[in-house]
Design a protein around this nucleic acid. Structure first.
Lengths: 253, 253
DNA sequence: CAGTGGTCTAGACCACCCC
DNA sequence: GGGTGGTCTAGACCACTGA
């Protein structure tokens, strides 16, 4: 579930503030701090962990940005209601991945190069050629999403070197999204999303066990790395009877 | 466009880090830092503004979390591609509001109380009674969104005291969302969203100039304050030919 | 090697809240 | 008035980058 929270990116020594925020996360989800019961103060944690107050503040920063707690000057730090009990999908790519890991990948068309000027343009490519793959995601033996994945040819060629990506058919617990960093050497930093509704065409209806004309949820995602380089464009069609997109929106950036 | 960025919540003295981050935002959007040209280092800004390095770091924190820049240890700080030229909708409630301010509100049903056990439950109310209003959003004289707004009775009664909310018909540049904090005394901290696609029923089709059975985008938003108290539930139906929901997703929380 | 950002310390002053 | 979180300082050490 949790990926690499104690800010110690797999291998590095854990940071002091990561240790503190992780301890507080555990206590929060264990229900140690009911409503109106403040968390320990900065001073208390500072003494308890033998660190400076600034380090404790750094730990609280993370908890606030995750929406787990809120802080009131003069009063204290409090757990956000429901944060202990319910799932908090904040709409990050990590969330997408952890959901996808419970599903299976059904490759309909392995990676191949095609000439698609419009797609190439959206990927910021000079040439018309893009690498494309078509696949479905399966949950409980039922397909709920049809995806066309488009990639820069450079990335596409490396994807094609992966045996599973050349093999049509079912690949349990596999996600293309986590292959991108592996083959490109670039970590995904975010994605621009465009969400709309359309009517299912023949292809979509067939792939998702629906009928032509049924409403489907369409989500386009344009992935980029931290420098803004475009890594992939995925066009997803969801069967709304089997999937709803849920996430949490914050008040401001 | 920008709301209250220089962390000086309307009236308070501007903070040092807010001044610095705001200056950098202006320079970034003016294109002062092309790709591969690093922003000033922490040391440079620290000397230039006569502040400590930690204060400069605090300024950079905001820019990073907004996705405007990324930082590489040992190399420097760089502008994210496209961040100067394109709109960055990060999917916050502030973004929702600034978009809605360019549209008009058409009230179909003023606030009134109804018994809706399911809605009341979603709002976490003990009683069955909720306050409800129905309205459309209009852009370029064309309705693109039909909304059922549901509120706790306490908030609904105060909403009903506002003259515009009692008057059916067109109210230019008005948003219900910004009334909520005014009448409830509670700032909206976030919302849980559920997005799906449905077929238009008679009501939705009539309100959005569509036909029965047309695909529509449905977005449910459950708003809460920082303490997790539920403030409103809005059920929105969008005409997909006139609206697509766009926002940016980050890699992790 | 000098320079970068990442972490951390041990102080300080302030506005605000609650008693 | 004592305690809270918000801001800020002036140092320090580290891992990592690039020339």
């Amino acid at each position: 579930m949790r990926s690499g929270h104690p800010k110690s990116h797999s291998g590095g020594r854990p940071t002091a503030y990561g240790v503190i925020s992780e301890k507080l996360r555990r206590e929060i989800s264990a229900g140690v701090y009911p409503r109106d019961v403040p968390l320990p103060t900065e001073m208390e944690l500072s003494k308890e962990h033998q660190v400076s107050r600034q380090t404790v503040r750094r730990a609280f920063q993370d908890l606030v940005s995750e929406g787990l707690v809120y802080r009131v000057p003069g009063r204290g730090t409090f757990v956000t209601a429901n944060s202990g009990r319910y799932i908090r999908s904040t709409g990050t790519i990590d969330d997408l991945l952890s959901l996808a890991r419970d599903t299976d990948l059904d490759i309909l068309e392995p990676v191949h190069e095609v000439r698609e000027p419009l797609i190439a343009q959206r990927l910021g490519l000079a040439d018309d050629t893009v690498a494309t793959a078509v696949f479905r995601r399966i949950h409980d033996d039922r397909p709920y999403c049809l995806t066309q994945g488009h990639y820069p040819p450079e990335i596409g060629r490396k994807l094609a070197e992966i045996p599973e990506m050349r093999t049509p058919g079912l690949h349990p617990r596999m996600t293309v999204l986590e292959l991108i960093p592996r083959v490109s050497g670039r970590a995904i930093a975010g994605a621009d999303q465009t969400i709309t509704a359309t009517a299912a065409d023949v292809t979509v209806a067939a792939a998702l066990d629906g009928n032509v004309g049924d409403p489907v949820l369409r989500i386009d995602r344009l992935y980029f790395d931290r420098a803004g380089m475009l890594l992939a464009l995925s066009v997803n069609h969801f069967n709304p009877e089997r999937y709803a997109y849920r996430f949490q929106m914050k008040a401001s950036g």
